[in-house]
Design a protein around this nucleic acid. Structure first.
Length: 724
DNA sequence: ATAAAGTGACTTTTT
DNA sequence: GTCACTTTAT
């Protein structure tokens, strides 16, 4: 069999490279997924490697499924036994198999973001900490970061008082997870890495099995993932990674594109193969992308080139506000489709934040045109879907307290907070699990616990206990769908949802959709169904068949391509996002995000912004994204008004001052402070002025304080004293 | 125990 | 302006 169909020389070189560590550095659209696919097929067909001995890790399940199909296509047969999936999926499987070495059972459940937040909150409350001061989300972010860096509670570095709080909450949070026989997303990686690191037997088992390991999107691996693949490949050292540091967009999730460099150091004998030729975009789009990414510091220049030709110039558009931004895009799409120049499915609308999708959706709804939105949260985050999943999770793992508290009184069965609290206390005192108490209460008055509750509460709990016990007995014999049906009938979930409104109908439709998904698990276990649902990614929810425009975040766009791309919200504060303004690394990542968006486009690129945008309900004028300054005018229809930040920006500032502040006090024209000056702040002490400028007639001073770092202050409010 | 009304944080990005 | 969560009235 010839396996070089349509591969260029470099790609073939990567496909048929010898053994040992290999790193493929691949620009956007250079066919890295193809290379990965061909490499797997090559290993199986030419090197006689058994699929069972190959592990390939992709970023999403969707990518894994596509790759599996393509490998089988290339081989002209099945590739049974091939391990192909996401990091989280692969870890979940290892943890189930090796549960005997771990502090939880193999039927553990994976807690979602809401469950995780709930648990952190509980931990915070138990420690009598102020939830206002220590926000669960923020504490959880710190815990998550620690986990991605493989830091256990005991090793948590303590530099500030807050660190001590985080450590305490982290410790308790882990206990609570284990009490529920649960893990969170980060734990999947953490426990797996930990197991491979400390259990020689297990490490040898897997590293011997996986003769070949292949990793896609390597620039977005975090330390836990890096350590994981290092251990997994420790026996055979056949590790093949593909990545592009310019497309690293998950720093906030612990990803470190320097893993590419680390790889070169740790595997100094690695072959390095560069893929530069682009097969996706026109040269104009590539030139735009290069112009944008070029401004990032500390990167090696990559020359993106294509044989596709220059193509069309890109279009910039300024809409009056967010509404009109959406309307203009929908109008443009409708017009192009009407002229027969494109299919509706050719278009993608990308945005920085999820909140932006609403106005875009509204524009489609208004025009009565269909669209699809990429985002798992949309469906799996719905109340009714979470309810039904919680029932299933509870049956599968009776220790799952998060699910229990979710469903024990849904639909209402007169079990209020007071009763639940009593139940908890009772279980704690008796040293048994909540599930045990409930199942015992199913016996009714015979139960030793029955008398501990008021008559009404006891009856209500007993009723639920009976249902619960019944599901537990029936579950082993039932498919996930059959179990779901039984539960839905037993609790009469449909009439609970049906309140006569349109919304109630929609909710039931979602339950039906969930049933459809469960129906695919006829041959597979409940455990597999639960795991799949817990680990769906946004991209997994994309159906390619619907021939309609796609709405998605720039993050979700990674790895995809579309004939025409609209990047929306190109305003300072949105892209780049305001939260990255005072962090150079963050700003570099914002730029990469823009770069990823641009390079998704095959033929047409539209850069769109709104002159006014509402945040928190108030509409405010915006500044154009500073990234637009870097795009050469000759690439844009009608030139670039912001090229190198020149004229337009100034003109606009003047205009804004004239309109917005007609009668207030005369604008201060000169900053009072200067960069380099030392100042004293009443609470933060001494610091150095980094920058001082006039914004909206107010002097804004950026000061670096020794203890707390950079702060942006209003000179009129901050009571800064100059220190000499 | 539950529904209604009020409060306050909040928008990055996601497995 | 929205969501989740808390307080309050029934």
């Amino acid at each position: 069999m010839e396996l070089n169909r349509g591969l260029n020389t470099r790609q073939q070189q990567a496909m048929s490279a010898g053994l040992g560590p290999i790193q493929v550095l691949a620009g956007p659209g250079s066919g890295k997924t193809r290379v990965l696919t061909f490499r797997i097929a090559y290993l199986i067909s030419h090197l006689a490697v058994r699929p069972y001995n190959i592990l390939a890790v992709t970023f999403t399940n969707k990518a894994a499924r596509e790759m599996q199909a393509r490998v089988e296509d290339l081989l002209g047969g099945e590739a049974r036994g091939l391990s192909l999936g996401t990091f989280h999926g692969a870890c979940a499987r290892i943890l189930r198999i090796e549960a005997e070495y771990l502090p939880f059972d193999s039927n553990y459940v994976i807690f979602d973001a809401d469950d995780q937040r709930g648990l952190v909150k509980q931990a915070i409350r138990e420690q009598n900490l102020d939830e206002k001061r220590y926000r669960p989300v923020s504490i959880h972010a710190s815990i998550s970061k620690a986990k991605n860096d493989l830091i256990l509670p005991d090793d948590f570095p303590l530099q500030t008082y807050r660190d001590e709080i985080v450590q305490r909450v982290y410790t308790r949070y882990q206990e609570l997870l284990l009490n529920s026989n649960a893990v969170d997303f980060d734990d999947l990686l953490l426990w797996a890495a930990h197991l491979l690191e400390h259990n020689l037997e297990v490490r040898e088992k897997y590293s011997r099995r996986y003769e070949h390991i292949l990793v896609d999107e390597f620039q977005d691996t975090n330390l836990a993932q890096y350590v994981l693949i290092k251990h997994l490949s420790s026996f055979h050292r056949n590790i093949f990674v593909v990545g592009d540091s310019d497309q690293s967009i998950y720093r906030w999730r612990g990803a470190d594109y320097r893993n590419l460099q680390r790889f070169e150091e740790d595997f100094s004998d690695a072959q390095i193969i560069l893929l530069e030729q682009n097969y996706r975009s026109t040269q104009t789009i590539l030139d735009t992308a290069m112009a944008v990414i070029e401004s990032n510091p500390y990167r090696t220049h990559k020359e993106l080139f294509t044989k596709k030709g220059k193509g069309k110039k890109l279009t910039m558009h300024e809409a009056f506000n967010g509404q009109e931004e959406g309307q203009w895009i929908v109008h443009t799409i409708a017009e192009t489709v009407a002229k027969g120049k494109a299919d509706p499915g050719d278009f993608a609308l990308m945005y920085r934040t999820n909140a932006q999708s609403r106005l875009l959706e509204e524009a489609f709804l208004q025009a009565n045109l269909p669209y699809k939105l990429v985002g798992a949260q949309r469906f799996y985050g719905r109340r009714e879907v979470k309810d039904v999943m919680a029932y299933l999770r509870l049956v599968h793992n009776p220790n799952d307290e998060a699910s229990l508290s979710r469903v024990i009184n849904t639909p209402r069965r007169k079990i209020g907070n007071k009763t639940i609290l009593n139940l908890r206390t009772l279980a704690l005192n008796e040293g048994v699990t909540l599930a045990k108490v409930l199942i015992d209460l199913a016996k009714g008055e015979e139960s030793e616990f029955y008398g501990a509750f008021s008559a009404g509460a006891a009856r209500a709990l007993s009723g639920f206990g009976k249902l619960f016990a019944g599901w537990g007995d029936a579950a082993p014999e039932l498919t996930p769908l059959a179990l779901m049906d039984k539960i839905l009938t037993d609790v009469d979930y449909q009439s609970y949802l049906d309140d006569g409104t349109e919304e109630g109908k929609d909710r039931w439709d979602n339950v039906l959709e969930l049933k459809r998904l469960a129906a695919e698990y006829k041959e597979r276990s409940l455990s597999e169904f639960l795991e799949a649902v817990a680990l769906v990614s946004d991209q997994d929810t994309m159906d390619k068949d619907a021939n309609v425009p796609t709405l998605l975040t720039l993050h979700a766009a990674k790895g995809l391509e579309f004939p025409t791309v609209f990047i929306t919200g190109l305003e300072d504060g949105t892209l780049p996002h305001i939260r990255s303004f005072d962090d150079p690394e963050g700003m570099a990542e914002e730029r990469r995000l823009f770069y990823v968006g641009i390079t998704r486009a095959k033929n047409d690129l539209f850069l769109v912004r709104a002159l006014n945008r509402s945040t928190y309900g108030y509409q405010e004028p915006t500044d154009p994204s500073r990234f637009l300054d870097d795009i050469p005018g000759e690439l844009i229809q009608g030139g670039n008004p912001w090229e190198l930040g020149k004229t337009y920006r100034q003109r606009q500032t003047h205009a804004a001052t004239n309109w917005d502040a007609p009668s207030t006090s005369a604008p201060i024209l000169e900053p009072e402070f200067q960069a380099g000056q030392y100042v004293r702040h009443p609470t933060w002490g001494e610091g150095m002025v980094l920058n001082a400028k006039i914004e909206d007639g107010e002097e804004v001073v950026e000061v670096h304080f020794e203890d707390i770092g950079m702060k942006k202050l209003l000179a009129s409010l901050a009571k800064l004293e100059v220190v000499t």
